[in-house]
């Protein structure tokens, strides 16, 4: 399957890029690394008239720390993240998550911005145009039905990106630039929990994600990312859980964040599990209790190859592992 024709515009600055997006009125997309986009284009999931490249804007490739925050340019590749000493030192879970994305051959192309903007996925949607022609068009593809639920006007495609749960756990915000100017948005608010249009950009805001801003974590911060997948490379997460713990004396849980990917149409925060941990000493029984609570906080759909029941079971196991790792109880 070859790519269809499109125009290609290499923006020299962000204003140009925004103007170009506007000019094409919805039929224009940003290409970052392109690893995910090219497959989608080959499958004819989108047929843009134009792609806008940000390759010529060097400022989007910086990683720096300033005034208590770490700034990562949206065009940094996952390999840049893996190789950054700053990230390794201050945001170890982010390095880990980057290391587990896709395969080595994609990590040198794929960008953090692209991963944050990754569309939701579904076994009925991420297929070729021929494949999809066997069935009625699904809601995400512009039809009216969801093949997972058989309901009208609904989409339960799964959010499957690895970087966002970690970034949300770190309290990251994203900088967006659009026709109405620039705004800084907490990353969790970037996501809509709408399977069809899962984030602000995909809802058609005409914006571009330029930078991620992460408050430098305190020295009491312990963080990790545990990814569960059926194959340890060339695979999306079946479930990924980012855990961030603020531990006093290495054990007392002052604060916690648990963010789950692969379990819904957006990254999910396990709020009740967090409550369970707060102001408690982290020990095995508490971890098991929190893990069980988290499993009941997600409502996965059969948009992948495993049953929701299995996913819920795994959520508890993976969270327990993540808490043990973040709490220094296991390697």
């Amino acid at each position: 399957m070859r790519l269809l024709e499109f125009d290609y515009f290499e923006a020299e600055n962000l204003e140009d890029a925004v103007a170009h997006l506007k000019k094409y009125n919805g039929s224009c997309q940003i290409i970052a690394g392109g690893t995910d986009l090219l497959t989608a284009l080959k499958q004819r999931l989108y047929t843009p008239a134009c792609l806008v490249s940000l390759d010529n804007i060097p400022s989007l490739k910086n990683i720096k720390e300033e005034n208590g925050a770490i700034f990562i340019g949206a065009m940094c590749t996952l390999e840049d993240i893996i190789n950054s000493e700053l990230v390794a030192k201050k945001l170890p879970a982010l390095k880990q998550a980057a290391w587990e994305v896709g395969s080595p051959l994609l990590r040198s192309l794929a960008t953090i911005g692209g991963n944050i903007c990754l569309n939701t996925r579904c076994r009925f949607y991420n297929q070729s145009s021929f494949w999809r022609s066997s069935r009625e068009k699904c809601f995400k593809a512009g039809g009216s039905i969801c093949h997972v639920t058989n309901k009208q006007e609904s989409c339960v495609a799964t959010f499957s990106a690895d970087m966002p749960p970690v970034l949300i756990a770190y309290g990251a915000s994203v900088r967006l630039i659009g026709p109405k100017g620039t705004r800084l948005l907490p990353l969790r608010q970037f996501y809509t929990d709408n399977g069809r249009f899962p984030n602000e950009i995909l809802t058609g805001s005409g914006e571009i994600l330029t930078e991620i801003e992460i408050p430098t974590p305190s020295s009491q911060t312990n963080s990790t990312y545990c990814k569960f997948r059926l194959r340890n490379s060339i695979d999306f997460p079946l479930l990924g859980i980012a855990v961030l713990l603020i531990l006093d004396k290495g054990k007392f849980c002052k604060d916690a964040r648990i963010i789950i990917t692969g379990a819904g149409s957006a990254p999910i925060e396990a709020v009740e599990a967090r409550e369970k941990l707060l102001q408690q000493e982290l020990e095995p029984q508490l971890i098991d209790a929190a893990a069980q609570i988290a499993a009941s906080e997600i409502h996965p759909m059969r948009s992948s190859f495993v049953s929701p029941r299995y996913k819920r079971e795994i959520a508890g196991v993976v969270l327990a592992e993540a808490l043990e790792k973040a709490g220094g109880i296991r390697e």
Partner: peptide, 23 residues
Amino acid sequence: VYLEKGQLFNPSFLSYRLPISLD
């Protein structure tokens, strides 16, 4: 080869999970 109603859901190396080096 994952089939539902004659339709093959995993016609790719991403979703047809054959062994990789790590296995």
